[in-house]
Write a protein that binds this DNA or RNA. Structure first.
Lengths: 332, 332
DNA sequence: CTGAAAGCGCTTACAG
DNA sequence: CTGAAAGCGCTTACAG
């Protein structure tokens, strides 16, 4: 059977196609009686609007691209799931895109295919490459470093790192190793690092560069494992390991276990993101919750405003972060 | 600036719109000289085909719905990521849909919105509800119980459960508890269960229903934790726990640790899915790899055939499963 | 091997 | 508050 069209519904309801369209779009200025007749006809025909037709006529697609580096990392999986559901609740369909590297990410945000969506929400890799190309559609960035080129939700990087560092200092740790994301061999310069330094300074504890393990591909458990093995082999002495995320911390926990280092007795370990896994490692993992629900709501709200036509300068909304202490950093 | 259209490109190339269309679609029957001229014009204009226009004219959308129960479970996240990339490699865009319950899943596969995609790949909940509605678009099911209503890739449920059970028996375990997915209180009837029973029978070891913990919402670590606590409290004695998936096994590991039960000395634990996490639990987790790459390739290939018009009866492709032994089930 | 016309199913100004 | 016409950007038969 042929799929019913607007014209079919209009014929059944005894009105013009435009009136049916007005009802489908929820426009006001339709008499209640007409509205009811149209809705009945829609029901009777089993009509569903054809998005290709609507898209062509209106220029709107009803779709939003959601770009994440991967979804094997629980953090991104959780954010992606929240974004999909939040967009869905507003009648928009998410097009989840996996951008494994910076080039794929750039293409997903600035490339030609972007014209087939109404807007883009991107969770960027460490740093979004500077660029002079203007995006074809509104873009909102979730996390990462704000660019000034588009709206951005900035998570509580600094506050979170500050809080977890203070927590370690408060519980007696003094030599805190960092397992960090960034260009290898380069001293980190991000907000989390700044928060960490600020907390150290407030306690009068010096920062030791020998205790920093930096790598650009450290977003898997295996990476954390390798980084921790490297730290242990370096002979550096430390009583805490502040890890860039939970996945890396899980790998670090395993490496410490393997080498007979006790957690938290010998070394405290902390993560970031407060993923589900953090409650189930052995020992359970102290982490920082970035208030994902809040971030997602802000991102979706800003994108909708842009799609609706808001044209002001790029905005930056900042959210907080909450320390979630668990066994891996208990005082000893 | 206005987005360039087919007509713009045609004007620049000095041909008709149809010829440009033929080139864009890779149709043969275009002279090499014309093809080159068109491609140059495309480049010059920065032309990208408008999917709404193509969709309306051709009836094809270039999109495939990928329906999964969630992506917080690493297994589904990994399958979804593989599907997205596999479809992308064939020029199709995935529309990832999260169907948290059976009703949402039914809507995603059989509902009206399905007309906006060319086909559907669904990773179903435990059992897809029987139904007499015909899907509006080709459907391929990945995992779960084949329905006979559409193409299905059946994972090595039986082989996997058989292999892991034999492994436990071979390493001296005799009282194997099951932490299983299913209707609460109902004896499981799925293929994995059958595989488990077959292995037990082959070794002449009786199955003890008192060692089966069944629940319908057991797909999170917390569920495995609770299930294992329940088993321990029941006073049942067991020397192994065969868990329905890695997430549940991770929760079970934690519960055993909490209660002072040693793994693998007192109890062996095994999971299913061979997720990344299984290599990093303490102790590392024996699991079963369902050969996800193979499954995804089969699913995408079958869907493409259907979209291309293949109309034969529902097919079922079976894949294998591989035991991945780790420390949690070491012989003692 | 290429063209001119029609039409996919909607919405958008323009009328009234 | 509603209608008739035009058009969004493409592909599909139909010609030649």
């Amino acid at each position: 059977m042929r799929r019913p069209t607007l014209a079919d519904v209009a014929a059944v309801a005894g009105v013009s196609a435009k009136t049916v369209s007005n009802v489908m779009l929820g426009r006001n200025g339709v008499s209640e009686a007409t509205r009811r007749a149209v809705l009945a006809a829609v029901e009777q025909c089993g009509y569903e609007v054809n998005l290709a037709g609507r898209g062509l006529a209106s220029g709107r697609t009803g779709r939003v691209a959601v770009v994440v580096p991967n979804i094997y990392q629980p953090y991104f999986a959780e954010v992606a799931e929240r974004l999909i559901l939040a967009l869905d609740a507003r009648g928009l369909t998410a097009m989840l895109q996996i951008a494994h590297d910076g080039a794929a990410e750039r293409e997903a945000v600035l490339g030609g295919r972007v014209r087939d969506v109404d807007g883009v929400i991107v969770c960027p890799h460490v740093a979004f490459p500077p660029d002079d190309t203007a995006p074809a559609r509104p873009v909102v960035q979730l996390g990462g470093v704000p660019t000034g080129r588009w709206d951005c939700v900035v998570m509580g990087e600094r506050e979170g790192a500050d809080a977890v560092t203070r927590h370690l200092l408060d519980t007696g740790r003094r030599r805190i190793a960092l397992v960090w994301n960034g260009a290898p061999g380069v001293r980190p310069s991000d907000d989390r690092f700044a928060g960490h330094l600020a907390a150290l300074a407030a306690y009068g504890v010096p920062h030791d560069p020998a205790l920093v393990a930096v790598g650009s591909d450290w977003d898997r458990r295996a990476s954390g494992y390798e980084a921790m093995v490297g730290l242990l082999r370096s002979g550096a002495s430390f009583d805490a390991a502040l890890c860039i995320n939970d996945a890396v911390a899980a790998g670090a926990l395993r490496a410490l276990h393997r080498h007979g280092v006790r957690v938290p007795e010998d070394v405290a370990v902390t993560g970031f993101d407060d993923t589900d896994e953090s409650g189930f490692t052995v020992p359970s993992l102290t982490s920082v919750s970035p208030r994902q629900g809040e971030m997602v709501e802000h991102a979706v709200a800003m994108l909708l405003e842009r799609i609706a036509g808001h044209a002001g300068p790029a905005r930056a909304v900042r959210t907080g972060a909450d320390l979630v202490p668990r066994a891996s950093s208990a005082a000893v």
